[in-house]
Every structure is written in structure tokens, then in C-alpha cells.
Design a protein around this nucleic acid. Structure first.
Lengths: 145, 145
DNA sequence: TTGTGTGCAAATCTTTTGCAGGTTG
DNA sequence: CAACCTGCAAAAGATTTGCACACAA
């Protein structure tokens, strides 16, 4: 049987509150999606989120999934990733930015963070007269023999 | 009037040769596309390349542009970039890898390279048991006030 | 109540593909 | 000549949108 993870409940609550604070209505469909996003440990795309959402409430439409994801992105609750191929994938926004390693064989996505690189990036942009609004770095890798 | 840039002719020739070496036929349409890619100083998408190609030879179809770009990518002649939104953009493959700064206001794309970051990336991947096959790094920026 | 949100289906946009005919090597 | 390419149009995949109805605040 499945135990309820209390930290998961908190996480969902925090996301819900972020929406209310943004003056956005928290509908039944959005609650479902927030919960699913909160408990996701991978980087699902819209279709996959739709599949998971319907398992909880089969009235959720794919259009709503897309519309909700746009709202959540605008509210800073989720992050959209466009990897090299296929549909966009989503994850709950991490207050501490991180980058991704994509395992080319398994498709698995691994998160990492390196402050040295972050700092170098800022330096490079600054030297060219720019300020970084956001950035992405993806390492497409294979396991070493 | 327009002068013919000799280095441009050489560049086109080099690309054409790369195709022949790969056992790929160099058709009229492919020649046109290679020349357009060689003289491009920006990062055009397939539709834009199609527009430019038709200005030279209006029989070139969009399907051929896409098919040719796939061949050129496979032959290592061009690189495909999927930036955050919109269609894929292409540029002649740079033997020395580089990354991109995307100016969020103008849409302009600026290239840069930093060996220190490249090295750190390799280290990070190695620590996690991975070998980098290829990677991408994009800094989405605004000009500093 | 009232402005938002939703489901459905159709539209859009990008990219791919089947097929019949054309061209390169 | 044979294998490879091309144009055209249709298909496919992802995402957006118009509309009439439903619902959160």
C-alpha cells in the first residue's frame, strides 16, 4: 500500500498558494495537475501529464493541460524544457537553477549544478554587454565503457 | 554591385567535396542550398532557407530543403539548433564548437566559446560516469542598461 | 454574479513521407 | 542504367484557439 508523503502534500500546497497569490483561479483540473507535477520525479511532456491526470480525473482535456502549463510557467511554478527532439517536457521550477545531462541511450535525464560554470557564464555575458535572463545547458552523453 | 568573395567560393567547394566524399549526390538543389548556407551570416530556419533558395532556383521545394538539411546534418556539414521557440535553425558546422547568446529583445544570435566551461563540462560528465557526445549551452540575455 | 476556465473540435505550424517521375554518377 | 533525388500533396505530431457552456471567487 501507498503511504502519503507529507512533504509532497506541502509541496502541492505551496504551488497552489503560489497560484492564488498570482490571482489565478485554482480549479479542479489545475489542482490535479499541480499534484501530479509535485509528485513527478521525471520530466514528463504534456501528453504524459494528460495521461496521468486522466487517471485521477478523466474529464481533464489535453487543451487544458497545455493551457495550464502555460499559466504555471508564467507564474514561475513550472519550467518548460525543449530538449533536442520531441515535445517540450516540464518540471516544477527549482529555486536553485540546475542543468541537465541527457543519457542518449536510455533517454534518462539527470540534473546537476555547477557554480563555477554559472559564474563563468555570467562573466562571458557581461563581457559582451549582456545580462543573463535565463539559460540552458544540456550535455548529451553516453555511459563510459 | 556585388563582388564575389573568393573565400566564400572555397567554403562552398569544401562543403560540396564533403558531400561527394560521403558518397552523396550533389544535385542542383543541394548546390544551391550549400551556397546559401555558406554565405549565410545568421541562423536561418528551413522556411527562410527555402525562401532564399527559391530566389536562386524557384523549383526547389520545401520538402527538399528539409531532406537536404537532414542529409547535411548527417554528413556533418551543418548543425541544427533548436532554440527555445519556433522552428529549428541551421548553420554550417563549425569545426571548433561554439555556444550561443540569444538577445531576447532583438532575436539576434551571438556566438562564443569558452574552453574553461568546456573543460568543466567534461569533468562533470566524467564524475557521473558519462562521456559527452555533444552539448548545447544557450544564454538568453538582455543588453545591460 | 461575473469574469475565468474548460471541453471539444478545428486550425496552425513544423516536419516527415508516399508516390510517380526526373536526374546523377 | 540503376540508384538516388525531387516535387507535390497528404500525413503526422505538437500546440494553439474559437466557441458555447461551466464554475471559482
Amino acid at each position: 500500500m501507498k503511504t502519503i508523503d507529507p512533504s509532497l502534500r506541502d509541496k502541492t500546497k505551496r504551488l497552489t498558494q503560489a497560484l492564488r497569490d498570482g490571482g489565478v483561479r485554482v480549479t479542479r483540473q489545475r489542482e490535479v495537475l499541480l499534484r501530479i507535477l509535485a509528485e513527478a520525479e521525471d520530466h514528463p511532456d504534456a501528453t504524459e501529464l494528460h495521461r496521468r491526470a486522466r487517471a485521477v480525473d478523466d474529464s481533464v482535456s489535453l487543451a487544458t493541460v497545455y493551457r495550464t502549463l502555460s499559466v504555471l510557467e508564467r507564474e514561475g511554478v513550472v519550467q518548460r524544457h525543449s530538449f533536442e527532439s520531441g515535445a517540450a517536457r516540464f518540471e516544477v521550477a527549482d529555486p536553485a537553477h540546475h542543468d541537465h545531462i541527457v543519457d542518449l541511450d536510455s533517454g534518462e535525464i539527470i540534473e546537476f549544478r555547477n557554480d563555477r560554470i554559472e559564474e563563468l557564464q555570467r562573466q562571458i555575458a557581461a563581457e559582451m554587454g549582456y545580462e543573463i535572463i535565463h539559460h540552458r545547458m544540456e550535455l548529451y552523453c553516453k555511459k563510459r565503457a
